[in-house]
Every structure is written in C-alpha cells, then in structure tokens.
C-alpha cells in the first residue's frame, strides 16, 4: 500500500499520474492498462478540484494505491462538497457539434477505464472514490 497527499491544484495532476502509473506498472499492467488508470485518476482528480473543491488551492487530494490479488485498487479522498454521481448526466455525443456542452465526459471515461467505481461521502471524512482495475488474465 502506498499513500500520498497532493495539493488540490491542476499542476499536481502530473505527479498524481506518475504515482498511480508506477503502482500500475508494479502491479503488472501493460502500457494500455496503465494509460487507462492514469486517465481515470486524472479525470477523477480534475473533477475533485473543479467540482468538490470548486477551484484550485482549496484542499488536498489523498491518493492510496493498494495491491489486490488480481489487480490494483485506487482510493481518492477529498474534503470538498459532496459529490453525487447520479446528478451527472452521461454525455450525449450523438448530437450535433454546435449543441455539445462540456460536461460529464470525465465521469463517463472513469467508468469505461476502470472495472469498479464507487463513491462514498461522510460529513467527517468527505468524499471517497474507490476504483479497481483488474487484470484481464
């Protein structure tokens, strides 16, 4: 298990990706799977900064990587406002270009990239996002 704290700023994203990609590599994932983990975590942390904290420099992101028997579990914690995934409509990319609104793609990508995605909130500890990536073989 490895845990690291990052300031809730967009410039932290590169360091967070590096942290989780090293864990994914150690867990034995291939390049494509490592990229999927990096992308899911990047999208999740961008959402934390933008939506849970409502901007940069408002709090920390605590990232934990746990080796599990058939893959990797990543837990992200923040102390921002409650995130309710049910309130985020999935993006509709069947509509014409002019009508596209920039929202919802991050959460959708997270679900596509990871095998398990679970959000939890408590007033004491804030938001917790648990994601699992499993090995194919």
């Amino acid at each position: 298990m490895a845990t690291e704290k990052f300031p809730g700023r967009f410039e932290s994203l590169a360091g967070i990706r590096k942290f989780v990609s090293a864990a994914a590599e150690d867990a034995g994932f291939d390049d494509k799977e490592i990229y999927a983990v990096e992308l899911a975590v990047d999208e999740a942390c961008s959402n934390i900064i933008e939506h849970a904290y409502g901007g940069e420099g408002k709090g920390e992101i605590i990232c934990t990587c746990n080796d599990i028997s058939n893959g990797l579990e990543i837990v992200l914690k923040d102390n921002g406002v409650k995130f309710n995934p049910a309130e985020v409509a999935p993006p509709d990319f069947s509509i014409e270009l002019e009508k596209l609104k920039p929202r919802g793609a991050g959460l959708y990508l997270i679900h596509q990239m990871m095998d398990d995605v679970a959000f939890k909130f408590s007033s004491e500890s804030g938001n917790e996002l648990r994601m699992v990536k499993r090995k194919v073989n």
Partner: peptide, 14 residues
C-alpha cells in the same frame, strides 16, 4: 491509446 479513449467516450465522430 489516445485515439481509443477518444472513440470510447464518443467524441471521435467530430
């Protein structure tokens, strides 16, 4: 891998 994620999210058609 970038093209894959673009197509996966559905933005590729644009």
């Amino acid at each position: 891998r970038i093209r894959d994620s673009l197509n996966l999210v559905g933005m590729g058609s644009y």
